[in-house]
Amino acid sequence: MKISNERNVEDKTVIFRLFVAGDEPHSKNAKDNLRTFCASHLNASYMIEVVDVFASFKTALKHNIFLTASLIKVAPRPAVTLFGDLSDTHQLIKVLGLEVIADGR
């Protein structure tokens, strides 16, 4: 599954890969929190690829992912991995290292 702000994927597009376990509570929270973050704080175009481990757990293993929910910032480099439901916005801002609107739109 992919979520984007409907812009063409460019080099400056932020690409997220989110590993979830269907609609399990933390996975659902992670999806919602990431969308909110991207919409409110990200000052760039973005694309979110959602990988459901119920459908394909081997993809997660290939990416060294062992928990759900887990988020990999694929682009721009460097790749960063976050675990949990992504409810801590400050941690997101800090770890992702992206150009953001601090207080949100």
Binding site: E24, S27, F57, L67, T68
Partner: peptide, 24 residues
């Protein structure tokens, strides 16, 4: 660092499950 993060996430109870060789 990832392991530490995973540990924290698990400790905080913010994960749904684990992925192993046999499945999720």
């Amino acid at each position: 660092a990832d392991v530490e993060s995973m540990h924290d996430a698990i400790k905080d109870g913010k994960v749904d499950g684990v992925i192993g060789k046999e499945g999720f």
